[in-house]
Amino acid sequence: MSAEVPYRPSGAGDKIQKQIQLPFSKAWQISLQGIRIRWARSLITASGIFLGIAFFSFVRTAGLFPVNLADKEAVAAANRQTWLAIMALLVCFVGIMNAMLMSVTERFKEIGTMKCLGALDNFVVKLFFIEAGLMGILASFLGWLMGWLIMVLLHLISKGVEGMGGAFFGSSLKEMAVSVMIGATITMLAAVPPARRAAKMPPVAALRSEI
């Protein structure tokens, strides 16, 4: 054997091969299974999203009912709603961030292991993207529904069907879209960057990380 070894042998059969990209369906399959098996943990994470959006939706729905402009107290209350909505958004932002960051960092070791087994960085990111997306959309929708239902119930009890015409339901649908979008966006914002960071680390750094 010669003393020096070539950097990249170019001889036939010695060609350096690249890892294949896995299809999206494979990531989808593994993500779904992860959520299913980790059901209890996923529920806790999702409830963070759910409650945040429920509060937000509750406040927003209250603002959908028409206000009697002659009633000064009602007008003042309606103005307070704006501030409440901002507060609600903050609360749900922090709640979701916290839940998602925890659920990603506690799996750094898993990310390191997957990389040792030959996972590409973007495949790992895909897993977390799908998981966060699914949880974000589902939990946000349910959260919106919960907040909306409670507000509508309260309204029915105190004021009956007053102000619950087609316009109300139309705006409710819009609110639903806003809630789901906000929820899903915050969820993915909280999950994907740390997952990407972990995927880009040398495996040993991800394996070593402890929480």
Binding site: R8, D14, I16, K18, Q19, C116, L117, G118
Partner: peptide, 23 residues
């Protein structure tokens, strides 16, 4: 196997971890 690991890009390294080395 006579290949300098520092010369490998991310996908080649992943291939190596997947096929050549078991941890």
């Amino acid at each position: 196997n006579d290949v300098d690991m520092a010369q490998l890009d991310a996908r080649e390294l992943a291939y190596l971890r997947c096929h050549t080395i078991g941890y």
